[in-house]
Simulated scan of single mutants.
Amino acid sequence: MTDLAKLPVTVITGFLGSGKTTLIRNLMQNPGGKRLAVIVNEFGDVGVDGDILKSCAIPECPAENILELANGCICCTVADDFIPTIEALMALDPRPDHILIETSGLALPKPLLKAFDWPDIRSRITVDGVIALADAEAVAAGRFAPNVAAVDAQRAADDSIDHETPLSEVFEDQISCADIILLTKPDLAGPEGVAKAKALIATELPRPLPVIEVAEGVVDPRIILGLEAAAEDDMEARPSHHDDHDDHEHDDFESIVVEIPDQEDPAALVAAIEGLARDHNILRVKGYVAIAGKPMRLLVQAVGARVRHQYDRPWRDGEVRQGRLVVIAEHDDINPEMIHAALGSTLTAAAE
């Protein structure tokens, strides 16, 4: 790459828990000869995803090439956060060959594309492609679809009502903006679920797009890097529910951070999170927990009632052994007292 060439950027979008961090971790470890840099934008102020990626840093993507923007949408804070972060990565020596941006699972990608028209950077970077991840099991289960029966009943009474749910709008905006869709977790969905998910996605796409099954984030980097889509110049082909608005709102979703003390039994924690998701429509839980008597930190990642956990690294010398979980749900479903009580009913009392 010459100094005059535009630096390619790949935007990786997808709903909460669709596997974005896992995909980027695999790209970092198999970069196809490219020197990568990563921007991670998280919903909530506990930097789980950025910490995971930094723990996987290698010479082709060292820790200093991984920058995190937490608790804010980068397309809403262009001047304050996004532009300085891009410029910091472009100033690295050696300069990255390619930048990956992992958006928040609640982000709308099209407003981010508009940020690439910012005067300070538009002549120096280009959006090589937008990659949308879709959780096959969640799509097949209809998690992103409106309630069809309720919609029909309301439409009969008042055809002026907008019946789209926030979840379905976010999902549709993400896949409509994409150049390639990666259908993740096909093993959990099974062949029938994968087929159903592909059919549902096809009905929502504004144009034909390749849909590729990907398990555990493993994909040949040549498939998704080097698309040369120049997506910033192709906005009309990427419709959004928010095209008629100059800005977009994030008020449909909310997050809180729950601090919990050392736990005796990871299984009890898992059961508490599963119950919270089932009973209170919690979308996502992620964070770290200290287990009594264990020197390793427990990483917890939950999508709805599907909970995964593993010991990811030892607690560092001088590091506070404090468990912190980010809980994300639609705005009407976030009740801090209820969430603390739900965890505290099975675990030792959560910090307020």
Rank of each mutant, 00 (worst) to 15 (best):
G14H: 02
D234F: 09
L347G: 06
G287V: 11
K198S: 04
D173N: 14
Q174P: 04
E330H: 07
S160N: 12
I161H: 09
W118R: 06
D317E: 14
T2G: 13
A79R: 15
K196D: 13
M338I: 09
W118G: 00
L36V: 04
D247F: 14
I224Q: 05
L69Y: 11
K286P: 02
I12K: 00
E172L: 04
A351N: 15
T21K: 10
V214L: 03
S160F: 10
A271K: 13
D243H: 11
A107N: 05
Q322S: 13
I339E: 00
P261N: 09
I256C: 06
L4S: 14
T10W: 03
I86G: 01
P208C: 09
A199F: 11
L89G: 00
R316H: 14
D51S: 14
L23V: 04
D162Y: 04
V46E: 11
A149N: 11
E228A: 12
I223R: 11
K110H: 04
H280C: 04
A91H: 14
L53I: 07
A302E: 10
A189E: 06
G293E: 11
G14P: 05
I74P: 09
C61N: 01
D279K: 09
R308M: 13
D49N: 13
D45K: 15
D152A: 15
I291A: 13
A157C: 12
T2V: 05
D135T: 09
A5Q: 14
R316M: 13
N65Y: 07
A277Q: 00
K6S: 07
E42I: 03
R316F: 13
I223M: 14
V40L: 05
A237Y: 11
A132K: 01
L16E: 02
K198G: 02
D3E: 15
K110R: 10
L276M: 15
Y311E: 08
D158A: 13
L23Y: 00
A272H: 06
A88V: 02
G217S: 05
V139N: 01
A141G: 10
A341C: 05
S240T: 09
R297T: 08
G293K: 13
L225W: 04
H98P: 03
A145M: 14
E319L: 10
P208T: 08
I223W: 03
V194I: 11
N281P: 02
D162S: 07
D179C: 04
V214D: 03
A91D: 13
D332I: 13
D233C: 08
I24Q: 03
A132I: 11
S345E: 10
F82C: 08
A341Y: 00
F43W: 06
T2A: 15
G344E: 01
D234E: 03
A138Q: 11
S176W: 02
A138G: 10
A202H: 09
E216S: 12
G32T: 11
L36Y: 00
D179M: 03
D265E: 13
N41R: 07
A350G: 12
E337F: 05
V170I: 15
T13P: 04
V139K: 04
A70W: 03
D262H: 12
E42N: 06
I66M: 00
M28Q: 07
G14S: 06
A134R: 02
A195H: 07
A197S: 07
A202S: 15
S104F: 02
D135W: 01
A342G: 09
I161N: 14
T126S: 14
